[in-house]
Structures are given as C-alpha cells and as structure tokens.
Design a binder for these strands. Sequence first.
DNA 1: TGATACCCTACTGCGCAAGTAGGTATTCGA
DNA 2: TCGAATACCTACTTGCGCAGTAGGGTATCA
Lengths: 149, 149
Amino acid sequence: MMFSTKAEYGVRVMVELARRGGDQPIPLAEIAEREGLPLAYLEHLVARLRKADLIESRRGAHGGYLLARDADQITMAEVVEALEGSIAPIECISGGPDGSVVCARETDPEHVCTTKLLWTRVRFSIIRTLTETTLADLIPATRKQPAAA
Amino acid sequence: MMFSTKAEYGVRVMVELARRGGDQPIPLAEIAEREGLPLAYLEHLVARLRKADLIESRRGAHGGYLLARDADQITMAEVVEALEGSIAPIECISGGPDGSVVCARETDPEHVCTTKLLWTRVRFSIIRTLTETTLADLIPATRKQPAAA
DNA sequence: TGATACCCTACTGCGCAAGTAGGTATTCGA
DNA sequence: TCGAATACCTACTTGCGCAGTAGGGTATCA
C-alpha cells in the first residue's frame, strides 16, 4: 500500500461534494455518515483541502463545504498532494521548486545514484496519471451538465 | 513517500549485483559496505529476492549472491513486488489472481465505488512503468556487453 | 578444522497513521 | 436574543509496521 487513508477518504469527500453540485454547502456530517467514515477524522482532512483552496467552507447553521472550482478544473494531483503532501515514491526522491528531481543520497557528484532513474520514472508516471484525471472524471455520468448544448 | 526502504535498499542490491556481472558470487557484506547499509537488515531483503527466484546464493567461504537471470530479463516490477509485496496504491485496491481489480469497499453491488477508477489508473501506470524498466536499464553503460557484435 | 559466508527466528524501539476528545467561533432561524 | 447547527482548532491516545539488532545455526572452501 502506498497512499494512506488520508488520500482515500479525502478523495471520497471531494467526489461527494462534486456529485452534489449546487451552491448549497454540504455539512461534513452528512458525508461522513453516507461514506461510513469518522467525522472527527474527516475534519482533519477537509482542513487540508481548504488550505489548498480546493474547497470553501460556510460556518454556522446550514453551513458546510463546497468545491472552490468546477470539478473539471480540479486535478486529482492537486487533491492527493494536498492530502498526502508532496508526491514521491520514495523518501530520497523529491521534486525541487523547479521541475528538477533531487536525490538525497546523491551528495557526492562523483557517485551517481543509479536507482534515481527508476524512481524518477515511477514518480513521473504517477503524477501524470493524477494530473490527467480530474475530479469530474470520477463522477458517475448521471447529469453533471445536460450535454452542454 | 510510498515505497519503504525495503524497495530502495533492495533495488540497490540488485543494481550492484548486475553492475558486477560474472559468475563469481558477491558477498552481501561487500555490498552493504559499499552502499553504507546495515548488513543484518539487507539479509532480510535478499531472502525475499531469493524466494522470488531473482537471485541465487552460494553458501560457505567465497560465497555470496548472483543474479538468477540476465539483467535485461529482470523487470523492476518483479523486484519491487518481491520486496514490498503486491503493488497497490491504496489498501482497498488489489489485483485479483486474474487481471481484475478488486475494491474492498465495493461489497454492495448497488453502491459502486466511485474512486476505484482513479486508483485503478494509478496502479496501472505504476505497474506499467516498473514492468517496462528492466534491471539492465539501471546499469551505467560502462561495459555491460561490448556492443553485442 | 577454522574461517567465511549464507540462513533463520526472535526481539526491540520508534515514528506515524488513524482516530478521539473537547473546546471555541460563527451563523442561521425562530 | 437565544439556541441549535456547523465549522474550526489543539491536544491527546493507540496500534502497527518499518527499520534495525541479536544471536544462533548450517554449508563450503582452503
């Protein structure tokens, strides 16, 4: 297993928010009950999603959460990264501020890290898949938009 | 982070075995020292690699380990799977004996798991990358085979 | 026969994921 | 204006698995 339940639960919350669109905020308790997940724990996760500007919140009675953008404008890479932190298949590999990939074991410029190529490839393919999939892709095609024409 | 050091260290061992080819078994202690990794811990990892028929061992003095096959006949999917166990991006997703993908949360046939599509895609892209990369791909092109002709 | 190596089982410490608990702040409806 | 409903925040707890250690046994070579 590679992603924690943070990603699993958090994605479920996002899907649920997207499934019921509209301007009405959806209380977290409803989602928790529907998905059978502990409310108190979900609160931690939505906090991350909110800080990443993926959802908005309305406090008070009749409050809740809604998507900050349209579902097709939210990539799963954003969602997963907000929940799990920077995506790296292995500890020593992480993405630099620019696009470069850094290997923690590669201190000595002489001694090139032979395994870096592998983990770079894996990382890239994960990120590509997560970026190519939007939240809208995960919503059952019940309505979503009546055929935009 | 998604893979543990088991994968990281284990891959390093495999690369090292591949880098020095030949019929001479290489003692694990040598690799441990060269890579700066704890020998006793590596012993656990090579046990997994051996059980997966990826390496062979010679006991006794002048013993050690060698690749069970040529490096270009060993995919990194085999290596990683031997070390980490079945590759699944998330706990509820796992590969069935056939090619099918099983979702543990999908007990009720009515209630389809909406997030399954995402994790299936991620899993597939990881496995494809690991399968397309062979151990030979990770060896610095110093010699490997004098231009096969 | 001793040194060298693989091989196996059991144990340990620790960090982190997963979840709990309890309080505070804000907003709505009556 | 009050109380219910909801988000929001911090601290705490628990269990598990990773990472590593320890210590023996077994095969092989010189």
